[in-house]
């Protein structure tokens, strides 16, 4: 993260935080003064410090989701000044440092909002809709075993690299929060492409994309309007090229399902 200043002097900001006691309860913004902050502390550390103050006063601390604090788990999820994970490109909230702000700034902190991500409390949302999509097809059914011998299944380097780009998705939901339509297309396309690019993923390629898209729609996510706000907000800078790939996969699978021959024998094996 590029710092907006290289100053080492402490800074004070005003936080305008979304407070909501529980699901389906009315929420509101509450202002908190965060004083004398070390510019090198992360945004989440700053929230910890603010929470210390709040707790000392006997009030309910701000609930926020966090886990690894190194940008690989996808748990932290704050919309900061209207952008998921705050200013800066290719970082999660935990990788945002206070040096990205100026002394005296007003910082608006909200949860990742979407109808499919109901607020649990304050800044924490329920993102289990993503799990439902993964359960619909984000896996390879057969055991692929331990690491195979090199070259026993040839994978072109180009495909492996592209699959790795997609696999970098940490499932945080910033794409949904950034999208004007709360669409989950970037997340789903990353998961579909990650497996669809590998030889092991081919047998279930059609079934996977049809099932995952169908579940995505059923979960109430919006539709892509090709504005690419998702990839701009993605902490892993996953490209919206994967959305194009998923669109193609989905259309191919839909048309193929009409013409693909089916065996007459039912039964005997999983139907």
């Amino acid at each position: 993260m590029v710092a907006s200043s290289t100053s080492k002097s402490s800074l004070s900001v005003t936080l305008r935080v979304w407070r909501q006691a529980g699901p389906n309860q009315p929420g509101k913004f509450v202002d908190y003064a965060a004083k004398d902050l070390n510019p090198d502390m992360s945004f989440l550390e700053m929230l910890d410090v603010v929470n210390d103050d709040i707790t000392t006063k006997g009030e309910e601390p701000i609930a926020f989701a966090h886990d690894c604090r190194e940008g690989i788990c996808g748990t932290c999820s704050c919309t900061i000044n209207g952008k998921p994970h705050g200013p800066g490109r290719g970082i999660a909230t935990c990788q945002l440092y206070m040096r990205s702000f100026h002394d005296g700034d007003l910082i608006v902190v909200e949860p990742f909002r979407a109808r499919s991500f109901p607020v649990i409390k304050d800044l924490i949302t329920d993102r289990s809709a993503f799990d439902k999509i993964m359960q619909a097809g984000g896996f390879i059914t057969v055991r692929t075993g331990a690491a195979p011998d090199a070259n026993s299944i040839p994978v072109p380097k180009h495909d492996a690299d592209l699959a790795m780009d997609a696999a970098a998705c940490i499932g945080c939901g910033a794409c949904v929060a950034a999208c004007r339509n709360a669409s989950a297309m970037l997340f789903v396309s990353a998961k579909v492409s990650q497996l669809g690019l590998f030889p092991q993923g081919q047998p279930e390629r059609d079934k996977r994309v049809l099932a995952m898209v169908s579940t995505m729609d059923a979960m109430g996510f919006g539709n892509c309007t090709n504005q690419y706000e998702c990839s701009a907000a993605c902490p892993k800078t996953i490209s919206h090229d994967f959305i194009a790939r998923m669109n193609r996969d989905y259309l191919k699978a839909s048309f193929r399902s009409v013409f693909k021959p089916v065996s007459n024998s039912t039964g005997g094996g999983a139907a």
Partner: peptide, 26 residues
């Protein structure tokens, strides 16, 4: 209409912050 539904009641309280959407798309 679905897009509106996916946002309704849970849109960002702050004004939408456009990052890279083109003017023609908006």
């Amino acid at each position: 209409l679905e897009n509106k539904q996916a946002r309704t009641g849970n849109g960002p309280a702050t004004a939408k912050h456009w990052i890279q959407a083109t003017l023609s798309s908006r």
